[in-house]
Measured scan of single mutants.
Amino acid sequence: HNGKLCKLKGIAPLQLGKCNITGWLLGNPECDSLLPARSWSYIVETPNSENGACYPGDLIDYEELREQLSSVSSLERFEIFPKESSWPNHTFNGVTVSCSHRGKSSFYRNLLWLTKKGDSYPKLTNSYVNNKGKEVLVLWGVHHPSSSDEQQSLYSNGNAYVSVASSNYNRRFTPEIAARPKVRDQHGRMNYYWTLLEPGDTIIFEATGNLIAPWYAFALSRGFESGIITSNASMHECNTKCQTPQGAINSNLPFQNIHPVTIGECPKYVRSTKLRMVTGLRNIPSIQYRGLFGAIAGFIEGGWTGMIDGWYGYHHQNEQGSGYAADQKSTQNAINGITNKVNSVIEKMNTQFTAVGKEFNNLEKRMENLNKKVDDGFLDIWTYNAELLVLLENERTLDFHDLNVKNLYEKVKSQLKNNAKEIGNGCFEFYHKCDNECMESVRNGTYDYPKYSEESKLNREKIDGVKLESMGVYQILAIYSTVASSLVLLVSLGAISFWMCSNGSLQCRICI
């Protein structure tokens, strides 16, 4: 991952900044910058967002509201009850120091605090018919004063009620008058409520006091790749198909172990950190130390980045220098085999997901714990399936590479015959000098055995068991695999060879 928040398929997220979902939807004055928000790819909250409900109280069923919003990608904020005409018999300019803005008392931008007009609070009834052709999110509140005197001074009615009804919602609220500790300079409380109004449905408000009335509502448009994440990451000019709280993932790998919460087309989250597919040879310690064997393909974004291909070729060293050249036929066979294998694994496992966190309130801790156990169970199954699949494929890959290298080895052996000696570690020792032209003939299969047989015969008789390297004779190393990324691999195959001279070296080696 890149540690950044990015656009998702070209669409920017909605960053709530210092506000949370509650503050944004109710219209906390400190969240005025969010009022123009219309569309987004996903919503970003920060872990310690401080601006929620400015007048103390709870947004009821907040967790369910977050779940609903996680599939919303755009909205239209509109005046559901026009301020100047909807409440002619009531005062609608209630403000509070708890919702101060720029040093002055204020109130929510989407709600109206209705109080008595003169000395009376006549029963009010108002309704709205949803003609938007889509779901409408309606929010309101109920004020709970701290004393009967406060109730009387604001609403005149000691036994007030609030009723809200639609086809799918029907509740009646009565204020709970009680002494409470002071929070944000208030002994009173406000509880906030919401409902989704279906197209064509009607919502009716009736009250004799204590109503925090809707002013603006939201017509919602769903987008199934949307979601809500909690993150401290910063926004950058970048684009992605998959976003996590820790950063964007741009990967076609089937798995990731970065974060379980994802938005967009994302690899499946697994616990494993070692889900690797081999593309090189079986481990040979001396070669492995030099980083030549054991190439791997990573299938977990965050564990290993991208696929690494092994390729086969020849390396030689003689009086004229040293050089490398790919054996294109065996390399292409290996590439085709690995590509098919990788595609097979991805096809089997690479279903892209959006995974969002589930919200539970403080009273639902047991449910949250149960949900976590269920999620953990599914996660263990996914991890096991992934590891088992790759384990089985790896064994076949190792066998496949062994065969490829063996074929190259036999190709060289059949040409050199007794003009060189096998020394048991995949290397041959020449009994004759071999210049670049000679080396090329070994690589392309045109090695002239009779041409060098007499010199080889004489050297075999002279050496008589002495280690060949100390006599200045020449080696050919018969097994060799270097490691390159897919891009470098293609470039390498396009070149005939490249040279690395070893000044004054008397050794001649050709490596497979």
Results as ranks from 00 to 15, higher is better:
Glu387Met: 09
Ala420Glu: 03
Gln475Ala: 14
Asn371Cys: 12
Gly306His: 03
Phe428Glu: 01
Ile512Cys: 09
Gly357Met: 04
Ala325Leu: 05
Ile496Arg: 00
Gly321Arg: 05
Gly424Cys: 12
Arg509Met: 15
Lys372Arg: 15
Ala295Trp: 08
Asn336Leu: 11
Asn425Gly: 03
Asn418Arg: 09
Ser497Asp: 00
Asn425Lys: 09
Ile476Ser: 11
Gln243Asn: 10
His236Arg: 07
Ser505Gly: 01
Ala386Val: 13
Leu379Cys: 08
Met367Thr: 09
Thr305Asp: 11
Gly321Asp: 08
Lys433Pro: 01
Leu490Ser: 15
Asn239Thr: 15
Asp380Asn: 11
Tyr314Met: 15
Ser456Asp: 02
Asn444Glu: 13
Gly298Leu: 05
Ile284Asp: 10
Arg396Ile: 14
Leu416Lys: 04
Glu368Phe: 10
Val374His: 03
Glu461Val: 01
Val345Asp: 09
Glu469Gly: 09
Pro450Tyr: 06
Phe430Gln: 14
Gln507Pro: 08
Ala334Cys: 09
Leu391Arg: 04
Ala334Ser: 07
Cys511Trp: 11
Ala248Trp: 05
Thr351Val: 09
Cys511Tyr: 09
Ser502Lys: 03
Phe378Glu: 09
Gly472Val: 02
Glu301Phe: 06
Gly426Arg: 08
Leu292Met: 15
Lys373Tyr: 04
Gly424Ser: 09
Gly306Phe: 07
Leu416Ala: 02
Ile284Trp: 00
Ile258Arg: 01
Asn250Phe: 13
Thr244Ala: 11
Ser344His: 02
Ser505Thr: 15
Gly298Ala: 04
Ile284His: 12
Asn425Trp: 07
Leu403Gln: 04
Gly357Lys: 05
Arg509Ala: 13
Asn371Trp: 14
Glu410Val: 05
Glu437Val: 09
Lys417Ser: 10
Arg366Asp: 08
Ile463Pro: 01
Lys406Ile: 01
Asn362Ile: 13
Ser492Asp: 15
Gln243Phe: 07
Asn350Asp: 05
Asn336Val: 08
Asn252Gly: 15
Leu292Gln: 01
Val342Thr: 01
Leu506Pro: 00
Asn404Ile: 03
Pro245His: 03
Leu493Pro: 07
Asp309Asn: 13
Glu469Asn: 13
Leu403Ala: 12
Leu403Asp: 07
Ile287Gln: 14
Leu292Phe: 06
Tyr474Asn: 05
Asn257Tyr: 07
Tyr409Pro: 05
Gly302Met: 06
Ser322Lys: 10
Ile335Glu: 02
Arg271Glu: 06
Gly306Pro: 02
Arg366Gln: 09
Pro267Lys: 04
Lys406Val: 02
Gly494Leu: 00
Lys358Pro: 06
Pro267Asn: 02
Cys508Val: 12
Arg460Trp: 15
His432Arg: 08
Ala484Glu: 01
Arg271Leu: 13
Lys274Leu: 01
Trp382Cys: 10
Lys348Gln: 13
Ile512His: 02
Gly310Gln: 14
Gly445Val: 06
Met471Leu: 12
Glu359Trp: 05
Ser272Val: 04
Ser251His: 07
His316Ala: 01
Gln328Met: 14
Gly302Val: 03
Lys241Met: 05
Ser492Tyr: 01
Glu364Thr: 06
Ala495Glu: 08
Gly445Asp: 10
Glu319Lys: 08
Val412Thr: 15
Asn385Thr: 08
Ala297His: 10
Asn343Gly: 02
Ile308Asn: 02
Ser231Gln: 04
Gly337Glu: 00
Glu393Thr: 10
Ile512Arg: 02
Ile287Cys: 06
Gln328Leu: 11
Ile346Arg: 06
Asn239Tyr: 13
Lys411Val: 06
Thr339Glu: 10
Glu410Asn: 15
Ser286Leu: 09
Gly465Thr: 13
Glu301Met: 12
Tyr447Arg: 04
Lys268Asp: 04
Val356His: 02
His432Val: 14
His259Lys: 00
Asn419Gln: 02
Ser231Ile: 07
Ala386Gly: 05
Gly306Thr: 07
Thr351His: 11
Leu468Ser: 14
Lys365Trp: 06
Val442Ile: 13
Tyr324His: 04
Ala355Asn: 01
Glu368Gly: 12
Phe293Tyr: 07
Ile463Cys: 00
Ser330His: 01
Ala248Val: 08
Ile249Cys: 10
Leu392Phe: 15
Val390Glu: 08
Tyr384Pro: 09
Tyr312Gly: 11
Asn318Ile: 05
Asp402Leu: 14
Ser231Lys: 06
Gly472Arg: 08
Ile308Pro: 00
Gln352Tyr: 00
Thr482His: 02
Asn257Met: 06
Lys467Gln: 04
Leu403Thr: 14
Cys434Pro: 04
Lys268Phe: 06
Thr273Ala: 14
Ile381Gly: 03
Asn343Met: 06
Asp309Leu: 05
Trp304Tyr: 11
Leu370Gly: 08
Ser453Lys: 04
Ile284Thr: 14
Ser330Tyr: 01
Arg396Pro: 05
Met500Ile: 14
Leu398Cys: 02
Gly337Phe: 10
Ser453Ala: 08
Glu359Pro: 00
Thr279Glu: 03
Val270Tyr: 01
Lys451Asn: 09
Asp399Pro: 06
Asn343Glu: 04
His315Pro: 00
Asn503Pro: 00
Met439Pro: 05
Gly310Ala: 04
Gln256His: 08
Tyr314His: 04
Trp499Cys: 06
Gln507Val: 15
Tyr452Ala: 06
Asn371Gln: 09
Glu395Phe: 04
Gly321His: 01
Gly377Trp: 01
Glu461Lys: 09
Asn436Lys: 09
Ser272Asn: 04
Ala248Thr: 03
Lys241Ile: 13
Thr446Gln: 15
Ile284Tyr: 10
Gln475Tyr: 04
Leu281Gly: 01
Ile300Cys: 04
Leu487Gly: 08
Thr354Leu: 11
Val270Asn: 10
Gly337Asp: 00
Phe255Thr: 08
Pro254Thr: 02
Phe360Gly: 12
Glu347Cys: 03
Asp376His: 06
Phe360Gln: 09
Asn418Leu: 11
Ala233Ile: 14
Thr262Ala: 13
Gly424Glu: 06
Thr279Ala: 05
Ile479Leu: 06
Glu237Arg: 00
Gln332Thr: 08
Ser485Arg: 04
Ile335Met: 15
Ile308Glu: 07
Tyr289Ile: 09
Leu292Ala: 07
Gly504Trp: 03
Leu392Asn: 08
Pro267Cys: 08
Ser492Glu: 00
Ile479Gly: 13
Val488Ala: 08
Ile476Ala: 09
Met471Cys: 05
Glu440Ile: 04
Cys508Gln: 10
Val442Trp: 04
Leu493Ile: 03
Trp499Gln: 12
Gly313Tyr: 15
Ala233Gln: 10
Val466Lys: 04
Cys427Ala: 02
Asp376Trp: 08
Phe428Gly: 06
Glu359Gln: 14
Asn257Asp: 04
Ile476Leu: 13
Ala233Trp: 00
Asn318Thr: 04
Lys406Leu: 10
Asn361Ile: 05
Leu292Tyr: 03
Cys438Leu: 08
Ser251Met: 04
Ala297Cys: 10
Trp304Pro: 04
Asn318Lys: 11
Phe430Ser: 09
Leu506Tyr: 00
Gln475Glu: 13
Phe293Leu: 14
Val270Pro: 06
Ser502Arg: 06
Glu422Phe: 07
Thr351Pro: 11
Arg396Asn: 06
Pro285Arg: 10
Cys266Phe: 08
Asp309Pro: 01
Gly310His: 03
Asn419Trp: 05
Glu319Leu: 10
Cys508Glu: 04
Tyr447Ser: 04
Thr446Leu: 14
Glu454Ser: 10
Lys467Arg: 13
Val412Asn: 08
Ile496Leu: 15
Thr240Asp: 10
Asp309Arg: 05
Glu387Ile: 08
Ser231Asn: 12
Ala295Gln: 07
Gln243His: 12
Gln320Tyr: 14
Val345Gln: 04
Lys268Trp: 02
Val488Pro: 08
Ile296Met: 15
Glu455Asn: 07
Phe293Asn: 05
Gln317Asn: 10
Thr339Cys: 01
Ser456Arg: 07
Asn407Tyr: 06
Asp448Cys: 04
His236Pro: 00
Val270Gly: 02
Gln507Ile: 07
Ile287Phe: 09
Leu370Arg: 02
Asn250Glu: 13
Gly323Gln: 11
Glu437Thr: 13
Asp448Pro: 04
Glu347Thr: 08
Gly313Pro: 05
Val488Tyr: 02
Lys411His: 05
Leu398Met: 12
Gln475Ile: 03
Asn371Ile: 15
Glu265Thr: 14
Phe378Val: 05
Ile346Thr: 02
Tyr431Lys: 00
Tyr474Phe: 14
Tyr474His: 14
Met367Ile: 10
